[in-house]
Amino acid sequence: MTTDAEGGGSRRDFLNIVGWTGLGIGAVAFAWPLVHQMNPAADVLALATTRVDISAIAEGMNVTVMWQGRPVWIRHLTEEDIQTANAVDLNDLRDPEPLEARVIQSPWLVQIGICTHLGCVPLGNRSGEPRGDFDGWFCPCHGSHYDIAGRIRRGPAPRNLDVPPHEFVSDTELLIG
């Protein structure tokens, strides 16, 4: 009689565990669509690449293009830019990176125009704007100074400007993303 009762008891326990656990799993599964809907939608993901015609960008000129809703800066580096950038001692840098590591195909410097501190867009990509103490870009929000290679030199930003994935599909066309 005792064994019967115990058997019944453990069966019931097992059933209860399966039931309530199953309910919990279902609730979590139901939550997934509610979470995942906030991830980028298909039409947003489809805009993952931007094609740019670079034939008209003269030496020493900057242009700004949009990629995934963010500004991307393309600079046609001058010979002087390259010499200035290479003359810097890497040990002086917060985020040591030689110019070659930031450029896929010279003389094109392609970087995301967003300060790595808190996301402002630095000044200096258009002529007439302040370019900071290192003659590159200057973020007015909290005073981050970037040099002509887009490397952080002074101020609170932790990293150099990010370089987006990009490739040169021809001599005149740049594919970002």
Partner: peptide, 9 residues
């Protein structure tokens, strides 16, 4: 399946 389990419970 869950309806079945909870019915038994």
């Amino acid at each position: 399946a869950m309806a079945g389990i909870f019915y038994a419970m």
